[in-house]
Nucleic acid binder design. Structure first.
Length: 598
RNA sequence: GGCCCCGUAGUUCAAUGGAUAGAAUAGAAGUUUCCUAAACUUUAGAUCCGAGUUCGAUUCUCGGCGGGGCUACCA
């Protein structure tokens, strides 16, 4: 079914024919929301049409406006301001659209699985330390994009690759063996990932001491770093792991197990989940065979020293190593293997979306080219969902300087702040402890999620732990608060007047703010579509805020329940319903849950 | 050096090539017999610089300046 804007476009095309005997393309007709300082609902930008009309912008707009009002029932009036033709749409149009919207479950969502299957990878942690603020942005972004794509109609598979092998976890293993005295999460009361992370840090500290001692004895830094016993031990563990040494593998399994238990808790708090897990330990050997096959087909070439390369200079990139001279894999080799594995695991998979920081943009550009060289169909439909770093006032987070913001701690602080705020305002005295706990998390987590998602992914962002997170202004809690008030109105409305049944509404009751709110809400399907095609949750966050802001302003001076005129009361209550329904759906796509009261 | 991203109110963020560049916060001044004041109203404040394309540029192109990233037979 054509949208209002498409109808207007078509009407303008026809009008150009009638008025100017000119044929124009529908997409040269720009239709946009009329700015609030002017009269009208939709605006046609006339400048591009003057070529067809051979008249001044004002005269062109005049002719078109006159014709449109006469020939279209939907358009009740027009106004020409400079080169802009502002059209007023009959209120009954908005009313009937509103009724349709509130009667639709998940208004604006696409038909489930009506669009191609996509895979979204996010999180991708190393198993040697706990999750931090950077992971929060990654997880919230990846999870939200998954939900958005699903809402748009894609079949979505959420995956993470767990970097469970390598020198990093071996470092933790060495330090735990040497200094751990058999500590476990149970014996220490520490979360598993925290315990393993503690020994990763310990490794680094002891290692530095060793290096310094060696350097004091006259060794050069590079040499010392290599010669240090701890590093040798870590390398030895890695070699033994690769050789499948039972003791090392057992320790590796035990410590990774602790980490997974810890991550599970954090993921549950964050409200994210996955459909399929990939472990690097199971995929790191994939890719070699593919590289060899690529060598046969001529996609890659071998150098004299035996290393294998891909020449991407024709694509404007460099030459890229895909297999070392000793025949071992590099990261890229694994990524090729994993990518192709996933196509095999999920027949019908149309594309993969990788939620990874922007420092790896080059890596993914290369990866997609390599897949293409290997003949993967649709390789260039894959996408690197790149996002900017989260920076602190003192600069980048550095684990060595202890400036890493821990994910668990930050979440806990958010809930705590929500608690303090609510207690201070005296909002929740009559709630049970269990209800309060749920509420504080919804509000606190809503604040941090909204904060991280309202910024376009590609931009790096500043996070000041002390000042950044507000609960007022353009924030998650502001939206939640207005949702809660609207819900409260709806509850009382039902008590007083029974269930809302608005199958017909009187279009004459709306005032300007009300028409504005309705139009904003009816814009939602477009927002969702655009957000999905751009993989950008911030568009949804901004829509939620704008919608809420308009609602909040309106709510301030528009009584609802005590209105005696039934048609007006029902009309206003319908707005409340429309608002809550859409906000709950939209915020849900950001991974934010709404409280019933706060 | 080469390549990529980003420069918008004091600060944190918006703006498919369109009208007088929007919000929030911090600042100043107000609003509670009324459905939750975590709200609302008023006020002040910005496109890094210079060319070009265009009827029109925060947006596109080029050249500067400033910030970040990538440019490993590391993971």
């Amino acid at each position: 079914m054509p949208t209002l804007d498409q109808n207007i476009q078509a009407a303008v095309v026809l009008a150009c024919k009638k008025c100017f005997q000119a044929t124009i393309e529908a997409n040269t007709v720009q239709v946009q929301q009329t700015r609030k300082e002017f009269e009208g609902d939709r605006t046609v930008v006339v400048f591009p049409l003057t070529r067809a009309s051979q008249k001044s912008p004002a005269a062109t707009a005049e002719d078109l406006g006159k014709y449109l009002v006469e020939s279209h029932d939907l358009i009740s009036a027009y106004q020409v301001v400079k080169g802009f033709l502002n059209l007023t749409i009959v209120p009954t149009h908005w009313t009937s659209e509103l009724i349709k919207a509130v009667q639709t479950e998940k208004y604006g969502f696409g038909q489930p699985s009506s669009l191609p299957m996509v895979m979204v990878e996010y999180s991708s942690p190393n198993t040697n330390k706990p999750l931090h603020l950077g992971h929060l942005r990654n997880n919230f972004l990846g999870y939200s994009v998954s939900r958005i794509l699903e809402a748009a109609g894609h079949h979505v598979i959420k995956v993470q690759i767990i970097n469970d092998r390598g020198i990093h976890i071996c470092k933790s293993m060495v330090a735990w063996t040497k200094y751990g005295h058999g500590e476990t999460p149970d014996s220490t009361g520490l979360k598993g990932d925290k315990l393993v992370g503690k020994y990763y840090v310990r490794f680094d500290q002891e290692y530095k001491k060793e290096v310094k001692a060696l350097m004091d004895r006259g060794m050069k830094e590079d040499e010392a770093k290599n010669a240090a016993e701890l590093m040798q031990a870590a390398r030895d563990y890695l070699a033994r792991w690769e050789a499948n040494d039972p003791d090392v593998v057992a320790l590796w399994k035990k410590m990774n197990g602790w980490v997974y238990d810890g991550f599970a808790v954090t993921y549950a708090e964050m409200g994210v989940d996955f459909d399929q897990l990939y472990y690097e330990s199971e995929t790191y050997l994939l890719g070699k065979g593919l590289v060899m096959r690529g060598l046969e087909t001529g996609a890659f070439y071998k150098r004299d020293d035996g290393s294998v390369w891909a020449d991407l200079t024709a694509e404007g990139l460099d030459e890229k190593l895909v297999l070392r001279k000793d025949g071992t894999s590099v990261y890229m080799t694994q990524d090729i293997g994993t990518a192709i594995q996933r196509y095999e695991d999920f027949p019908g998979l149309d594309r993969q979306i990788y939620t990874v920081g922007n420092e790896q943009e080059y890596h993914f550009k290369v990866l997609f080219k390599l897949l293409k060289l290997l003949g993967v169909e649709g390789a260039d439909r894959n996408r690197h969902l790149s996002y900017g770093m989260v920076e602190l006032p003192e600069g980048k987070m550095k684990s060595r300087e202890g400036t890493v913001v821990d994910a668990d701690e930050l979440l806990a602080e958010m809930a705590e702040t929500a608690k303090e705020m609510a207690t201070e305002l005296g909002k929740v005295e009559d709630l049970s402890e269990a209800e309060k706990a749920v509420l504080f998390k919804r509000v606190g987590y809503g604040a941090i999620k909204y904060f991280l998602l309202k910024v376009s992914p590609q931009k790096s962002m500043m996070f000041d732990p002390k000042a950044s997170i507000d609960f007022i202004g353009n924030t998650g809690p502001f939206i939640q608060f207005n949702f809660v008030r609207a819900k409260s109105v709806l509850r009382k409305s039902e008590e007083l007047y029974g269930a809302l049944t608005a199958s017909t509404l009187d279009a004459s009751v709306w005032d300007q703010p009300e028409l504005r709110i309705i139009q904003l809400g009816l814009h939602w399907p477009n927002v969702l579509k655009q957000s999905a095609s751009e993989c950008d949750p911030s568009l949804i966050a901004n829509h939620c805020y704008e919608f809420t802001k308009a609602y909040s302003r309106w709510y301030q001076d528009h009584p609802i329940l005590q209105i005696e005129d039934e048609s007006l009361r029902v009309a206003r209550t319908t707005i409340c319903y429309f608002f809550t329904q859409q906000i709950e759906d939209a915020m849900g796509l950001l991974g934010i849950q709404m409280p019933e009261r706060m």
